[in-house]
Design a binder for these strands. Structure first.
Lengths: 214, 214
DNA sequence: ATATGTGAATTGATTCACAGCG
DNA sequence: CGCTGTGAATCAATTCACATAT
């Protein structure tokens, strides 16, 4: 049971989604072929990835959907609810506060914070916006595990510092900037501007090629 | 000048951000060490990545910020404005329509579409929401290059099909699902739920380790 | 002297082919 | 026979050491 490659971890999520589809279709069994098609990777890759996590299949027969869902959720740490706070209640923070699909994945929104006093008291979804000063108390009281960081890039580092000081150990960083964190705190970037620029890179390359031909 | 590795392309964006900071600080020159610190990678990595794109530095002296910005923008295809449409004007689509930093990167919002007739006519930011039926005409008229796909997962494939039929060749997919596209069309996922689950994977592993010790 | 650019070495990920088990 | 699980081989990415240019 060596450690699971990071590239594999990234794909487990897509397998879990394919499995959710299969559950909706009342399928009880599936195969590496079918998962591969739905997750847009090779069947080799699916089998190798799943094998990194354990031996969940039956040779000659395939995988049981229910078993695979349970095991992958376990590997991904989705066995208990995670309490989430949103830091920064601009448009994006508000959009996230209203996102309908969190419960389904055992993520529970437990707080909404902003440094701007004018936003305090605003009701968004099921939450009332609180001031950042209330963060340390709230993290302890509501057992907040992780936070969505949805402040402007210039405010990201200080907002992250406040979250970490309050006891948050996981940050999903929506700001288009890197943040420094101490050991024991994990940051995952969600960077749509980076995705946008990867897109123009590939489209630009194609356009140039076309332009080069006579 | 072999092709640039995909991992490198992903990092070029972060170098460009570090360079933007340096420009604001009025720095004219920089080094692989400084860029490495700001982009949170090794200096080896910076030099190798930049060398894939060309020879932009001066040995013994470093890189000129202005030169590097110009060259990286060129490599990433940011030499001309890109016209963008938003497909799906829910909370996320609205948040994106209001995002202030697009012009800075030469992305111009040129259309907002929704399949729901009740949303048509709504004014968001500088745009008025149009019905999906108006898409083909709009893509041609406004020379729309790419689209943000911000519809629910269940509607993502058909919305993507509509975009592609209308002539869009690049899609930034915010829906938590895979979409199938023909050759010549590029999709980049922006998947915050995947990021969230990578976070719980790493945090869950740490928690388990802690729980295992006596 | 100093910091880039690059071949060589190492590490990691993907692909493949097939052994193993139902 | 069918499909998983896995060692071996290929491919890609990262790290390193140093030659090279100013």
């Amino acid at each position: 049971m060596a450690s699971i490659p990071t590239a594999t971890v990234g794909r487990l999520v897509t397998y879990l989604r394919a499995l959710a589809e299969l559950e909706e279709e009342q399928s009880e069994k599936t195969s590496s072929d079918e998962l591969a098609r739905r997750a847009q990777v090779s069947a080799f890759q699916v089998r190798k990835d799943l094998a990194y996590c354990g031996r969940f299949g039956t040779r000659g027969s395939g995988y049981q959907v229910a078993v695979l869902v349970r095991e992958l959720r376990r590997v991904l740490g989705l066995t208990r609810p995670w309490h989430v706070a949103i830091m920064g209640m601009g448009r994006l923070g508000q959009a996230l506060a209203d996102y309908p699909n969190f419960d389904q994945y055992d993520f529970l929104l437990r707080g909404a914070f902003d440094a701007d006093a004018r936003k305090v008291g605003m009701v968004v979804g099921s939450m009332t916006v609180a001031h950042v000063d209330a963060l340390p108390e709230a993290v302890t009281r509501d057992a907040i595990d992780l936070a969505f960081l949805t402040v402007p890039a210039g405010a990201a580092q200080s907002a992250a510092d406040a979250l970490i000081a309050a006891g948050v150990r996981g940050i999903l960083n929506f700001a288009p900037t890197m943040i420094d964190v101490p050991d024991g705190v994990r940051v995952e970037p969600v960077d749509f501007l980076a995705g946008l620029q990867r897109l123009t890179f590939h489209m630009g390359a194609r356009a140039s090629e076309a332009a080069v031909s006579p």
